[in-house]
Amino acid sequence: MSRDSIDSFPSQAISHEECVGAMSNLLEIRDLHVNIEDREIVKGIDLVVNRGEVHAVMGPNGSGKSTLASTLMGHPFYTVTRGQVLFDGKDVADLSADERAKLGMFLAFQYPHSVPGVTVANFLRTAVNSVLGPENKMPPAQFRALLREKLALLKMDDSMAGRYINEGFSGGEKKRAEILQMAMLQPKLAVMDETDSGLDIDALRVVADGVNSLLGPDLGVLLITHYQRLLNYIKPDFVHVMVDGRIVASGGPELAQELERDGYAGFIEKALVAV
């Protein structure tokens, strides 16, 4: 497939009107612009992720991928200056991060933060019960069983549950712990920001298996990565190339292979020409 044809690949943007009456898109990003302080980082993104779809976003360092991810989750540091994020058809602009989590949004952080003195188990118990809501609290025994099951799924030692959140975790342990949290919270949309970075080959397979086991007709995934390697394990339905705050190309899995072979140079040039 030539690059031109990729550029003209119709994006999944179904206009909103067409959705009326049908089930709305899981995630719909419309002309999103995001500032950090006064600097524009995300410069107009349109993207639709439906239930059951895996989308990969690839792009050079500093192109705004993590900014997009944090904005989706509602980080107060990032200012949306234009555009919209719709989740299940609902504009989430006014929702705080916890409210978005309760709707079923999840972000696996590129750099997960540590919280000294708070154990993973205590945190997850609180998180699971927050997301389930006060009427549906999970009984403690059921919670412990679920946690053990998910620890096993990610081949993590039971003792991880008693450790403080990300405190002293190795890079790989942090990434596994992010997917553990995702497995416990069972979101509808998972945004994974470079979950593969810092993982050795075996860990990558474990994490990918973990993610694959969570995939299904109801889960939408936005996978931010630099490496084709991950996409060998988690098969994307769509691949998008992000350069300088914009999606400059979208295609199928073959686009990732092309990037692996040729790098971003061609796309960067194109992005510059476009400005």
Partner: peptide, 24 residues
């Protein structure tokens, strides 16, 4: 933000961080 992104309200997340702070 990290704790809130997992569904904890600002109040609950803040207290959890403080509890962790006292835990030492």
């Amino acid at each position: 933000f990290y704790l809130m992104s997992r569904g904890l309200s600002r109040d609950v997340a803040t207290k959890m961080i403080v509890e962790g702070f006292f835990e030492e």
